[in-house]
Design a protein around this nucleic acid. Structure first.
Lengths: 216, 216, 216, 216
DNA sequence: AATGAATGAGCTTTCATTCAT
DNA sequence: GATGAATGAAAGCTCATTCAT
């Protein structure tokens, strides 16, 4: 690297007895490291995130990262593992098209993930170069597509329907990227309420059963 | 960075007088460097692209990069500048909604950009950390949104219409990312013909004038 | 150090009350640590032996090493101190040339030191960088030379005789090194029976009283 | 490591234009690095030799070592490769027993290898942990044994004769170790003249054809 | 007595960059 | 215009050690 910095290293150490150093609370330290790591990975990507900075954010020694996560790769995976799925857990997934648009707009609106700073899906996109991580990423997005497919309630050619579900995933990813990494305005500032209308149209357009008379 | 390589360094230097050394063709050398740089930036991102590898691809000395582009940042900007806009040049932009979906599907299908290896929009997303580059990126995407807006032919609230145009941009970005960086299948393998149907529905859903009776 | 491991960390803790944790048997723990340390020092040398691995071999906490031996240096010295002399204790030293060759061949043959894995003289050669350790080492070898001298029963110039005794020491050291650290074959595999003949010739050649008519 | 230093880092830079920095002489720089590396590897062993110190000895930047030797392992191998064989080149090897003792005593006497500081065979013994290096080492010593065998002119059982040749190798190694690494006196200070007598007796004892009447 | 959290220092390696030729 | 030698700065990782509990 040898390049410039873009961050603003600040001691976080949330919830710690201020004044003194963080002492003897492995779980808390581990969690704080994860938090700081996620923040940097999402904001700066894998390469520009340095373990030294992560440790400094939390105010602990660099070697603790090795202790808890073994390596940078391990830290990244742990950050990834702790990341909420694209759209909630199993039970919470919207069960029909109508709910899907609303859920999406809420998920993608700014500030929806206060504990991550930015949308967690961005973490998935920060290349690590490790095939197993790439695989994790693919799996997560594939899962999401499958769920969208189930929620779509649409009939018809299976491949085409899956493609349409994946296009919805792509839209979600694109929105997250364009909002956070690019800062395209007004999209970057749109609230959930402003997003829901257009998203409903997209979801309907993509997932509505083909109208009678349409030729594919 | 840490270690692994993902490339396959191969001398390119196409169109050079074989046998002898590349001699004294500044313009050609410069162009070859740009080409090699784009390829790596798109495939590996900014950080994992090393100037040494770029120079080695072309078969010239590393210091030439400094001569022509001054720095890695400069090389990246030059690579970015030479990138075709998201959707063709001024005159070629589709003038109505109907054409837009088709143009998009063609643009986003694999192999559409043989000289880049992958979709050039990915180059826009490779963080450089430099604010001027970020600005370039935003500008390019903003331009595209404006043009989509013009092509949409829609009436109504200006802000909402711009938001919808930007959502289309986001979709394009998302598709490029999901195809190339993530490899989500079947989307990654879809042809222009397979993409056009769903994309038409999205474009219609997003840009069609609100049907009578709709409440926003 | 850099990276690779060459061991095969296995819990030893022989003779411990199985089932429960090693509890409160300071002497046993201390001895087990020494044993594990010797094994690693001999096999891997000083630098490549890590206290963590030694502690793990025994199954106790790393900090115990500090408690019992104060430091890595201390552990090494303790390991050295517990090492049997090159050739047995005082009373057992062979009293004449004839016995010397036989004792040597037995000492140097493989498997002669089951509790060390390799010949303990190797421990003497593992640099510690500490002058007091170097001194210990010199003293041990000097003692051995003196005893060889006494056993040689030879008359003549004192200095020359000492030199010859030290050459026998050097041979012993060389054999241990070449067998264990280098693995030179067939020497590395030779049994005591195979060694004794040649060694008898060396001992005779070196220590036999100068034949009449010889000029030194 | 994290341990003490035992050296005395001093700028060498022999043959360089004093006053200014070493400039633009790749071959000389490379050689100076090799020289410094050999010195440290022999004196301190592989682990305790740091690239920083080697570079500092020569007065150049650490990264040059990567440039010329790629890695620490590479530097070690290069140092090893440039090391003279145990006993001279092909033609120079003593052709009979009589010459062998004399050659050995000359080789093993102090100061015989001014460009190495210590006897180069010690370099062979400095573990690197790399199997290919271990193999190099074994091969070098095996070569030497074979040559001793050829020079011995002895008849008899082949295996026994090889064993005896290897014992002579072991003696050579042992003498080098005991002189340099251990500093056993008077052996460490003995001159070639003082060594030759005893060595002649050893060589005769080991390699002389079995006297008639001897049972093996 | 024993544990495990936390630290500090140092090592190899990697890169962008600069300087002479 | 072009080359290759040389530099500086940092990154990931490892280890002995110390400090609370």
């Amino acid at each position: 690297m040898a390049a410039r910095k873009t961050d603003g290293s600040a001691d976080v150490a949330a919830g710690q007895p201020a004044g003194g150093r963080r002492r003897r609370d492995a779980a808390a330290t581990r969690e704080a490291l994860l938090q700081a790591a996620r923040d940097r990975f999402i904001r700066l990507g894998y390469d520009r995130t340095t373990l030294r900075d992560v440790a400094a954010d939390v105010g602990v020694n660099l070697a603790l990262i090795k202790r808890y996560f073994d390596s940078k790769e391990g830290l990244f995976k742990a950050a990834l593992a702790g990341t909420p799925r694209f759209l909630g857990g199993a039970g919470e997934f919207p069960q029909d098209r109508a709910a899907l648009a609303e859920a999406l707009s809420r998920q993608l609106a700014a500030g929806a993930w206060p504990e991550f700073g930015e949308h967690p899906v961005l973490l998935l996109l920060r290349v690590s170069g490790d095939e197993r991580v790439d695989s994790l990423r693919r799996q997560a997005l594939r899962d999401f597509s499958r769920r969208v497919l189930e929620a779509s309630g649409a009939a018809g050619d299976d491949d085409e329907r899956l493609l349409r579900a994946e296009l919805l995933v792509a839209l979600g990813v694109g929105i997250a990227v364009v909002r956070s990494a690019v800062g395209l305005r007004p999209l970057a500032d749109a609230t959930a309420d402003e997003l829901i209308g257009p998203l409903r149209d997209v979801v309907d357009g993509l997932l509505a059963p083909p109208r009678p008379g349409d030729a594919v």
